[in-house]
Amino acid sequence: MAMFRGVMDRLKKGLTKTREGLVSSLRSIVHGRTLDDALIKEIEQRLIQSDVGVVATRELIESIRTDAKAGKLTRGEHVIDHLKREIKAMWPEADRSLKLAPSAPTVILMTGVNGVGKTTSIAKLCAQLRGEGKTVLLGACDTFRAGAVRQLEIWAERLGVEVVKGQQGGDPASVAFDASAAAKARGVDFLILDTAGRLHTQAGLMDQLTKIRRVVDKQIPGAPHEVLLVLDATSGQNALRQAEEFGKAAGVTGIFLSKLDGTARGGIVVAVRHTTDIPVKFIGVGETPEDVEPFDPERFVEAMFAE
């Protein structure tokens, strides 16, 4: 995973951009101040503004108040460490690596609402796996959006892998079926299935995901081994609903947090963590296939509160 080095720098650089006048960082607010009600109110505001959500924010603020009353927190600076600790504790040590099949191929199903960056995220996963010397096959199950199959094909050409595709407007489950059969026949290590973006409110389309799961499982018992939900780091509290609905329909096993290179701080995963147990597995921090890294709570929290 040598390629991940450097990405961290880029992530930090990405997050530093936020300091440039848009929203003053929490650190600069608390600097040199006594912890009082006015400051707590400002801290609340910053947390809300990073999409942590009302409920999670309220709990974090409560914990600050409790510790402040107990005399454990007196200075503004203490709050940063306190928050880091509290948020980090939301992700206890856990296995955040890709779940592998007992025997190849491992099938990864990518899901998410429209425009979150599923196809780009697939390119990133694919590049990472290729870098580790694994063989990968892609299945283009997005038969709905114009140009989606071609988009995946272009990535595949760039990354030197093959794509199984169907007809535009065809049945995505049949593409999944063919792709699974091909993955077995070719003996590849990984099969990654791209699906069409769908709003979690569209029951018919959500059922389609369940069907894809079923079809894949029929070909390769136990598959898909990993179902990743791609969440846009800029998304708001609606991400909670996305996690819930996709969890139900597709049995999501992990979150891929995309677009963390903007000014959004991805506080939404804190909100999501607060309501579900789905682990965050990867974060995407740029447009090139190399811009991916495994989720690490320690570093994520550091970056969230970085100067």
Binding site: L22, V113, D232, T234, S235, G236, A239, A264
Partner: peptide, 15 residues
């Protein structure tokens, strides 16, 4: 603008 955007919507819109 994506209607599902969070607090960041304002920053990107402003830029």
């Amino acid at each position: 603008v994506d209607a599902m955007t969070g607090q960041d919507a304002v920053q990107s819109a402003r830029s």
